Amino acid sequence: MRALIVSDSHGLTNELVVLKDRHMTDVDLLIHCGDSELIHNADEMLQFISVRGNCDHDQELPTEQVVKVGDKEVLITHGHLYNVKMTLMNLNYRAKELGASIVCFGHSHVAGAEMIDETLFINPGSIRLPRLRRERTYAILDLKDKNASVSFYDINGTKVDSLTTEVQFT
């Protein structure tokens, strides 16, 4: 099972279309973690499972969604309601409440993936305004049995090897 994860596109449209076109045949799921600044039914957002971020005004977008990816429950949220710029503790508690073993979020614009208390946290960074690095990034999650690999790519599709993370669920 493969999922493309993007966040914080802040009004970009062509880039979302390019990402969809580039990966549509090699991913099973498209996830947008909020701050698209587009309406939920904008052509560019079609096919994305998306949530509302602090810069989104479309009330049709939920603040969080839980989806099944393979045999894992995945919590998708923007992160602003959980204070993710300061700590992942609140988001970790929410994941536990919902039985999610993977969390996709944005808000901080800082790309990274890490395992905390048996939960995989993935922030794809931002394809518009990255922080702590130059590359405008998105992520691809590969799930096979108990193994997960998170690969990061810049907006041009070049892999950012230094961010790649591999974990194993117990």
Rank of each mutant, 00 (worst) to 15 (best):
M1T: 11
M1F: 08
I5C: 02
V6Q: 08
D8N: 14
D8Y: 14
D8F: 12
H10I: 05
E15Y: 00
E15T: 06
L16E: 08
V18T: 10
H23D: 07
M24C: 06
M24K: 15
D26V: 03
D26I: 03
D28V: 03
L30M: 14
C33Y: 04
G34D: 12
G34E: 05
S36P: 12
E37L: 12
A42D: 15
A42M: 02
D43T: 09
F48G: 03
F48E: 03
F48T: 01
I49K: 14
R52W: 05
C55G: 09
D58L: 11
D58K: 01
Q59R: 14
P62V: 07
P62W: 12
E64T: 00
V67C: 12
V67Y: 13
K68A: 01
K68G: 06
V69Q: 04
D71P: 06
E73P: 12
V74W: 02
G79E: 00
L81V: 05
Y82Q: 00
Y82T: 01
V84H: 05
L88P: 02
L88E: 06
L91M: 11
Y93D: 05
R94F: 10
A95V: 09
G99T: 08
A100E: 04
C104N: 02
H107V: 06
V110K: 15
A111E: 06
A111K: 04
A113L: 06
E114L: 01
D117E: 14
G125A: 10
I127D: 07
R128E: 07
L129Y: 14
R133A: 06
R133F: 10
I140H: 13
I140L: 09
D142G: 01
K144C: 06
D145F: 01
N147C: 08
N147M: 05
A148P: 10
A148M: 05
S151W: 00
F152V: 03
Y153W: 05
I155S: 04
D161L: 08
S162A: 09
S162D: 05
T164A: 05
F169D: 05
T170I: 07
